[in-house]
């Protein structure tokens, strides 16, 4: 707890050293990514459900707020209730029938769902087709203000996820992850518990989508590809020695690395893929010898 506050304070001093919009922007990007990872951590880390289409909820949040804000000339904050409803609904619609499935089937269904959402956004008129939506009003006009906004929201999201993990519901998620049959036999409705994880994860993802829409002021289907889902998942798994702090670091790493590798535009995702394999192999080897 103390360490978390210290880390928060340390990051908060960033604008003292630089107010370069480039750096602040990158920090905000990393922050949004950390928030996404916190949402997925609820699903994958606590509950052990593999979700390969998490970008769908990110997209649903971003599009819901973007469409409402541009069509009805609302400030972005006013769209939050609608975003909450949309993400909860999406979580129930997709999780409801599929969470009864075996876990690896769930992975593929979520992958298919991610593609359905992206393709639908590309085809529909209301979502602006392939070009998407532009002219979304920002939550905060000034880069420094936006940086602090992202920082606070992300910190709240992380605290929320961590607190959920230390509650009755969070323990139930972990029972499901550890041994689903035993959890069910102990009187825990594993289906409902999984659905709760899925819906809460999707709410976190949707709220991150609102920040994203505000940051870019324009959104298009290209931002919500499988690549995005995979990157968030990678952050969660790399960082998840079942610990949310690890996820924060890994998420920041995953968000910033491709940016730093921008010098080698063609090679960066290749290197990233290789790195991923190597890390998994090394981590496992270490465990095997330990």
């Amino acid at each position: 707890m103390k360490r978390a506050l210290l880390a928060f304070a340390a990051v908060a001093t960033l604008p003292v050293f630089t107010i370069s919009p480039y750096v602040l922007n990158m920090a905000a990007t990393a922050g949004i990514f950390v928030m996404l990872a916190a949402g997925l951590y609820i699903v994958v880390g606590y509950c052990g459900l593999l979700d390969l289409g998490f970008a769908a909820f990110f997209a649903i949040g971003a599009y819901t707020s973007g469409i409402l804000a541009t069509r009805f000339e609302l400030p972005l904050v006013a769209t939050l209730p609608a975003v909450l409803c949309a993400t909860v609904l999406a979580g129930i619609v997709i999780g409801g029938p599929t969470l009864r499935l075996r876990s690896d089937y769930l992975a593929i269904v979520t992958l298919g769902f991610g593609e359905i959402v992206r393709v639908t956004a590309t085809r529909l008129e209301i979502t602006g087709g392939p070009t998407g939506i532009y002219g979304i009003p920002p939550l905060a006009a000034d880069p420094v203000a936006f940086f602090y906004l992202v920082l606070v929201v992300t910190a709240l999201a992380l605290t929320g996820a961590a607190r959920l993990g230390r509650s009755k519901l969070g323990r139930a998620w972990q029972y499901v992850r550890e041994d689903e049959d035993a959890a069910e036999a102990t009187g825990i409705s594993t289906y409902r518990v999984k659905l709760a994880a899925y819906v809460l994860g999707s709410v976190w993802g949707g709220l991150a989508g609102v920040l994203f829409a505000s940051q870019l002021s324009a959104i298009s289907p290209a931002s919500f590809t499988f690549l995005q889902s995979a990157l968030v998942l990678v952050a969660v798994v790399l960082g998840a020695a079942r610990n949310i702090t690890g996820v924060i670091l890994a998420a920041a790493f995953v968000a910033v690395t491709p940016e730093l590798l921008r010098a080698f535009p063609d090679a960066r995702y290749f290197l990233f893929g290789v790195l991923l394999v190597v890390v998994m192999l090394l981590r496992h080897r270490r465990r095997a010898t330990a």
């Binding site: 992975a107 990678v234 990233f272 290789v274 991923l276 394999v277």
Partner: peptide, 10 residues
């Protein structure tokens, strides 16, 4: 599974 995702990227 994550490793497989890494292979796919590579």
């Amino acid at each position: 599974l994550i490793t497989a995702v890494g292979v796919s990227f590579s």
